[in-house]
Design a protein around this nucleic acid. Structure first.
Length: 600
RNA sequence: GCUGGCGUAGCUCAACGGUAGAGCAACUGAUUUGUAAUCAGUAGGUUGGGGGUUCGAUUCCCUUCGCCAGCUCCA
């Protein structure tokens, strides 16, 4: 969403200027609204102390320190107060002050968190903005007057740690959002509502796709028959694609002696996330990753330079302990299946492998209806070389390869320092869904750690052993998370090729049941996923149910259809499509599935 | 894990500390239906678990498990 709009802003030196860039103007508007909220809160709840109150991509928040617990009733009251203050056309009054003055000022006001912030600042010249009775330590810029503000709404209350540090005090955060106009605010609220309706947890229940049995298995997914069907279709598609691209599928055990995980380093660095179990007098580990297993498969024989690259793939189910508060439907779980693969290759093959993988990721994500991506190249922090495994020159070479591959693909990307894994630089692809939200799924990562620890090599043409280059890649990430994203992207209305049920046969009355069953049998024989609805209900009832279940086609059969050996096709989007021969419908459906058409 | 909110029938939700209800779903019967809900009846609950206060607890308190909104974390 690109913001349109402009406003007049006031800098901390008191000069004013016109902000034409919509994004920038919106950010100033929201930042100013957060100050207005802070003013309202301090007036309504004397004794509240201030944390910070920045704008965010969706709105703004302000953190407060107070023994009072904010409630939703308080939000309404604060909102009313904000409206009242806004009407008073209060001006934002900036002032430049010295660090010493600032410390003095906020110490007097007992704003100890502000004092802490100020004392950390390097510069000696700081600034404040005064709005009504509220003086805030702030660089600005702000709108000139509260009268210039737009539409706003307070959204939620949450705890937050001071400076995001879980060992520091916990504050209360109030979230809100602001826009230039009421219409934009309404559209945003409508979008929140749409996202709520598409929530995969809700749709998962309504469409009977999966469940989480909270009482016995928090954070673990039970795939119901329909969800499992979708998953099977995804897996079959991927398997076929990968095998045709030279990947070899394996299965590796879910548990292994902890020595494997000591060798890999996970026991040392990933221990907090691992489940362990005693077996006789030893300890076994439930695998949190597939890499060591794939390395063992690779190392089961001496590998010649001639057979590289070796691409080992697995729909590998891993388990990781995640803190209870982080679990979220299918998107954040404790057990999940990665569409994982490890590529073992020679240094001269890496570039082709990266390009090959990016091509594959692009093709596969597009098949699922995602055509907008953001790409990130994450590299190490050059100031902290000790945090990373491998040699600096390995890192430089790897980055060059990744950047070259991206260039050859013609993709724009963000280079982010310090975001790499400790074991190697990586490319991440975030996809953007139907509601404009981004999800990080595909990843392509160099690994300088495991090959060294396991001494993974190949025999070169010189008949000597050489270290292998290992890359880890996942295209969908995990099937659980991908399924969750897919459900929300389609709002539960899967395209024909993924729909667990592609068509429902709806007989008009009981005397058409026999024909309906015959239609079902014929279509099944043609590989159409079809169910005949033979319940004692009226046509409208069954149509409604099939619509709500988001089945792509409903096939109504009565006297006319029996007579002509046809079905009356109803499309979930466009309604009644008229009659069609059974075989024609089968062929059309198969074609829609084969082409992975997004409609209907 | 932390802060706050929440946990009642398969689902969505009611019930001033005083006999736990409704709609949908399920089941039974009637109806034989032409493109988004046919009618009637029946059954369904240790109110997440455990403990406490009380004559009496879905309601108040403690504890535990889980969920939700965030925070933190997420190779």
């Amino acid at each position: 969403m690109t913001a349109q709009g402009s406003l007049k802003a006031i800098r901390r030196d008191g000069s004013t200027y016109k902000v034409e860039n919509g994004e920038e103007a919106l950010e100033i508007l929201r930042h100013s609204t957060s100050h207005l909220m802070a003013l309202a809160v301090t007036e309504l709840f004397p004794g509240v102390h201030l944390g910070i109150g920045p704008p965010t991509s969706e709105g703004f928040y302000y953190d407060f320190e107070t023994p009072h617990r904010f409630t939703t009733e308080d939000l309404a009251q604060i909102e009313r107060k904000m409206e009242e203050l806004k009407k008073q056309n209060l001006r934002f009054v900036p002032s430049i002050i010295s660090k010493a003055q600032a410390v003095e000022l906020f110490r007097k006001k007992s704003e100890r968190l502000k004092v802490e912030l100020i004392e950390e600042r390097d510069g000696q010249v700081l600034s404040c903005y005064q709005l009504g009775s509220l003086i805030d330590f702030c660089t600005g810029p702000h709108v000139v007057s509260t009268g210039d503000m737009g539409a706003f709404k307070l959204l939620s209350i949450a705890g937050s740690y001071w400076k995001g540090d879980e060992y520091r005090e916990q504050l209360q955060r109030i979230y809100g959002t602001a826009f230039f106009t009421e219409e934009e605010l309404d559209a945003y609220v409508a979008r929140l509502e749409e996202a709520r309706k598409r929530d995969h947890r809700r749709l998962g229940k309504e469409l009977d796709l999966f469940s989480v049995q909270d009482a016995v298995a928090p954070g673990l997914i039970f795939w119901h028959p329909r969800g499992a069907k979708v998953r099977t279709l995804i897996e079959e598609y991927l398997r076929e694609k990968l095998e045709s691209r030279g990947y070899q599928f394996v299965y590796t055990p879910h548990i292994a002696r902890n020595v494997l995980w000591r060798t890999s380093g996970h026991y040392e660095y990933f221990r907090d996330n691992m489940y362990t179990l005693p077996v006789e007098d030893e300890e076994y580990v439930l695998k949190p990753m597939n890499c060591p297993g794939h390395i063992l498969v690779y190392q089961s024989a001496k590998r010649s330079y001639r057979e590289l690259p070796v691409r080992i793939a697995e729909f590998g189910t891993v388990y990781r302990y995640e803190k209870s508060g982080t679990l979220h439907g299918m998107l954040r779980v404790r057990g999940f299946t990665q569409d994982d693969a490890h590529i073992f290759c020679r240094p001269d093959q890496v570039l082709d492998e990266v390009i090959h993988t990016l091509d594959l990721a692009e093709e596969i994500l597009q098949s699922f209806g995602f055509d907008r991506f953001k790409v990130t190249l994450s590299v190490g922090d050059p100031a902290q070389p000790q945090d990373y495994a491998g040699q600096p020159e390995d890192w430089r070479r790897a980055e060059t390869v990744l950047a070259e591959a991206l260039q050859k693909k013609g993709w724009e990307y963000n280079r982010v320092e310090g975001e790499a894994a400790f074991y190697g630089p990586k490319i991440d692809i975030q996809l953007i869904d139907a509601l404009g939200r981004s999800w990080q799924l595909s990843t392509f990562q160099f690994d300088f750690n495991l090959p060294a620890r396991f001494k993974v090599t190949y025999v070169g043409s010189d008949s000597k052993e050489h270290p292998v280059v290992m890359v880890h890649r996942a295209l969908l990430g995990s099937l659980e998370r991908f399924m969750g994203v897919l459900i929300e992207h389609y709002g539960g209305a899967f395209p024909v090729w993924l729909a667990p049920v592609q068509a429902v046969v709806v007989p008009v009355s009981q005397r058409h049941h026999e024909y309906a069953a015959a239609v079902e049998a014929q279509l099944k024989a043609q590989a159409v996923r079809v169910e005949a609805d033979l319940r004692n209900e009226k046509v409208g009832y069954k149509i409604r149910e099939a619509q709500l279940q988001k089945v792509p086609f409903m096939l109504v059969v009565g006297d006319r259809e029996v007579e002509t050996q046809t079905v009356s096709v109803r499309n979930r989007l466009e309604g009644d499509q008229g009659n069609m021969l059974i075989m024609d419908f089968a062929q059309r459906t198969r074609e829609l599935a084969r082409s992975k058409s997004i409609k209907p």
